[in-house]
Structures are given as structure tokens and as C-alpha cells.
Computed example of a mutant assay.
Amino acid sequence: MTIRVVVADDQSLVRAGFRVLLERAEGIEVVGEAENGAEAVELARSARPDVILMDIRMPVLDGLAATRKIVADDRAPGVHVIMLTTFELDEYVFEALRAGASGFLLKNIDPDDLRRAVRVVAGGDALLSPSVTKRLIAEFATRPAGTAPDTGRLAVLTGREREVVALVGRGLSNDEIGRHLHMSPATARTHVSRAMTKLDVRDRPQLVVLAYETHLVTPGE
């Protein structure tokens, strides 16, 4: 199955570079380019890509606003957004996650890692660069600690699902969760998926944010 990608960036050389890097890999096809967020929204509807590489700083409509529109658009089902930027600023990280992005990567990413990221997100998983994950955890470390989990919001989860969400919040992969809880990676993935559905979150990064916001996980645990 070919992964369909749209590249959204206001610099033509950047778009061309990403196109070349991606199309060198088997099974990845760039089906469109956008030079601003408004064009990215239209391509999400018309080209129906699996993944959009979305720059944050663009004219007409920036990447964050475009991502919000795409995530909420019934005419663009199943489109996943990876935010790309040269700036690793905290406010962008959190805004990108809350906008519904499935990943957040710097533009200086290694080509092989970029192609791997596209495949991961197209497969329904989500990703953050290690440095971004550290910043995410550090952000919550500066907030007042809660004395107990937010039982109201977490009440929809089973005991096992709460365990799984806590481990997701600590940065564990499905394989690592499986080993920790003595279950298969497929079973761990199922628990993660059910928890996301029950908690009405789009993907794994947002599940990490929720784990901290509800104090199910606290920094340093």
C-alpha cells in the first residue's frame, strides 16, 4: 500500500527537498504541495493524503490553524498531520498537540528518520522527537502537583486501561507496555485504542498530555 503525502511549506525549495527525500523511499508518494495553510486544508479534502507534513509558520493560514481545520473536517477523514519547524519552542509543541497533530519534528531530521516518521504516523501511531518529549515532561514538572488522579475524567476507564494510559504517559511503546504488564503488544495497542476512544483523544501525544493533566502520571515517577 502506497502512503500518500502532502507537503505544506511556504518555501518552494523546502517542499522540493522533502518531495525528493520521501519519493526515494518505496511505498511513499507525494500527492500535493501547499504553500500556505489554506491550500493544505483544500488538499486534505481533495487529495485525501494519509499524512501531511505541515510547517508551522506559513502565510494566509498558519500550520496550527490549518491542522485544527483538518482534524475537525469530515471531508478529510483519516488525515494525519506531522508538524515540521526549525523552532523547538515550547508553545508550539503544546499548541501542535492540542491542535490534533500526530507528531512534531524538526526540519533538520535525518532523511531516514523522516521517512520512518511518515510510515509510523500513516500506520495510526503517533510520535514526538525525544527532545520534544523531554520538553513536554518538563512543562508539567513546573506545574503544581495534584494529590490524586482526576477520577472524574478517568472514571470511564477500566483498571487495566488506567494502567496502560499511565505507562503511555511515561513514554513507553506498545512493546514495552506489553512486557511491563505481561501482555502482547497487540493487546497493549487495543487497550491504548480503547482508552483514546473513551477519553475522546485523537492520538498518543494527546493521551500523554491527558495523563499528566489528570495527574495519573506525575513527573519524576
Rank of each mutant, 00 (worst) to 15 (best):
V156F: 08
G37A: 08
P219S: 09
T85S: 15
K107A: 04
R98S: 14
I137N: 01
G124T: 08
L84V: 10
G220F: 09
E139A: 07
M183L: 14
L172I: 10
F94R: 08
L13P: 01
D73L: 11
R153A: 14
A99P: 11
I137F: 13
I137L: 11
L127Q: 05
A66F: 11
E91P: 08
V51M: 07
L216I: 04
R160D: 00
A186Q: 14
V165L: 15
L207D: 05
L64G: 11
A8P: 05
A148V: 12
L157P: 06
S173D: 10
A195C: 04
R135M: 10
R98I: 00
E161T: 01
T142V: 03
R75F: 03
T218Y: 01
R202W: 09
A126N: 08
A166N: 06
P111L: 04
T133Q: 12
L172W: 09
D175T: 15
V51N: 05
T158G: 12
T197V: 15
I52H: 03
V20A: 10
G124E: 10
L216G: 11
A122P: 06
L136E: 01
L157D: 07
A40W: 05
A101Q: 09
L181W: 09
L210I: 02
D10M: 08
N174L: 00
A122V: 09
R119P: 00
R143F: 00
G100T: 11
A40N: 06
D9I: 02
R119W: 00
L106S: 12
L84F: 10
V7E: 02
G27K: 01
I28D: 06
P49Y: 04
E42G: 11
L53V: 01
V217Q: 14
T85E: 05
N108C: 00
L167E: 14
L216T: 04
E139R: 13
V31S: 03
N108F: 01
T2C: 03
A40S: 05
